[in-house]
């Protein structure tokens, strides 16, 4: 794998797409404005016109465009997903990012020339699982769930001829993506069914004598004191009681960042690194893309002499959840 590692950046809107392309993204990924993708948030994503404009903008500057159709259609809404596959093929995206096996089957049959990527929501954590999707649908790339250690990522790469993409920066899913029903347990809506985790319409803030409470549905996710800065109530980043101790029982508010191990990822043979955050602002996308472009270029030019510049770290931490970062499962101790 001597090809250069591809930098894949999020585009939740046309301005964000331009920021990503202008700051050095090799590839951007986007979704349509409905439940067919895992960032189905109000005001976000692309209608057909914006999608065509985005593709034109990216292609004219040498960047590729991927379209995420990575939620799980059910019988009553199946035609919306297949129509989205057809539309994506028609407007000329460079690849589809799919999670659902049935939809992959439809796409592979109907558009045999369309390149398919297996979404992180497809939960493939081993070369054996990847082989299944390769044999059935000829997928060209897999996005690995954020549950593997660096050595496990290496082994997967060695054992498959499918390109491997890993997350480089952004919000950290603690659970295996595509297999988490925490959100629907509390709100009725999950990433799999609705493209939403902890949806905003289920969030309720409340000032109480004990502090500022934030509920998701009926559940108190966290309570903040006067001087504490409050975060968005994602279930896995709340503070709960376990064994008489109040703490972040699942995970602290923090972002994933692989800045420290870029040379190892390159050496391992990853084909692409991905920035999370289609729900974030164009400014965020521009900032993160710029830093990762510089870092990736530096790591590729001189892997042995690579050290992350302190300004990169500072710039990324400034936009990170909880203003701090982690390697997540890539580092064994985190697990």
């Amino acid at each position: 794998m001597s090809n250069k590692v591809e930098l894949v950046c999020p585009a939740g809107s046309l301005p964000a797409l331009r920021q990503a392309v202008d700051n050095g993204a090799d590839t951007v990924y986007m979704g349509f404005r409905d439940g067919t993708n895992a960032r189905n948030f109000p005001g976000l994503n692309f209608d057909e016109r914006a999608a065509r404009q985005g593709i034109e903008y990216a292609h004219s500057r040498g960047s590729k465009v991927l379209l995420a159709l990575n939620t799980y259609p059910q019988p009553h809404n199946w035609p919306i997903w297949t129509a989205a596959v057809d539309k994506a093929a028609e407007i000329g995206v460079d690849a589809l990012i799919l999670a659902d096996t049935g939809l992959m089957r439809y796409a592979a049959k109907t558009h045999p020339d369309l390149r398919l990527h297996l979404s992180v929501q497809g939960s493939a954590t081993s070369a054996d699982a990847i082989a299944f999707y390769r044999e059935q649908f000829n997928i060209q790339r897999v996005v690995l769930p954020r549950v593997l250690s660096l050595s496990q990522v290496k082994r997967v790469i060695n054992e498959t001829d499918v390109e491997v993409e890993v997350f480089a920066f952004g919000s950290l899913c603690v659970m295996v993506e595509g297999r988490c029903y925490l959100s629907s347990y509390v709100t009725g809506e999950s990433p799999n069914t609705c493209g939403a985790c902890s949806p905003a319409k289920s969030v309720r803030w409340e000032e109480t004598p004990q502090g500022r409470n934030v509920h998701l549905g009926e559940v108190l996710i966290d309570r903040y004191g006067e001087n504490e800065s409050a975060g968005y109530p994602v279930i896995c980043k709340g503070r709960f009681w376990v064994n008489g101790k109040l703490d972040y029982a699942i995970e602290e508010p923090t972002s994933l960042s692989v800045l420290d191990i870029l040379p190892q990822l390159i050496e391992a043979g990853v084909s692409a690194i991905k920035v999370e955050g289609r729900q974030r602002s164009p400014a965020y996308v521009g900032q993160v893309t710029k830093v990762l472009r510089q870092a990736l270029d530096a790591a590729e030019a001189n892997p042995a002499g690579y050290t992350p510049l302190s300004e990169w770290v500072a710039q990324l931490d400034k936009v990170a959840e909880g203003s701090t970062h982690t390697l997540g499962a890539l580092e064994r101790q985190w697990q």
């Binding site: 799980y72 259609p73 059910q74 019988p75 199946w78 999670a99 659902d100 096996t101 049935g102 939809l103 089957r105 439809y106 497809g122 939960s123 493939a124 954590t125 081993s126 054996d128 699982a129 082989a131 299944f132 999707y133 044999e135 595509g178 297999r179 799999n192 069914t193």
Partner: peptide, 27 residues
């Protein structure tokens, strides 16, 4: 897991377990 499906597919009958994400007819 799909790795397990891959191991049994076309060889022996199996049960598609609750963690496979079967949400529609095509799957």
């Amino acid at each position: 897991d799909m790795a397990a499906v891959n191991a049994v597919a076309g060889k022996v009958p199996f049960v598609a377990g609750p963690h496979l994400n079967a949400y529609n007819h095509d799957t």
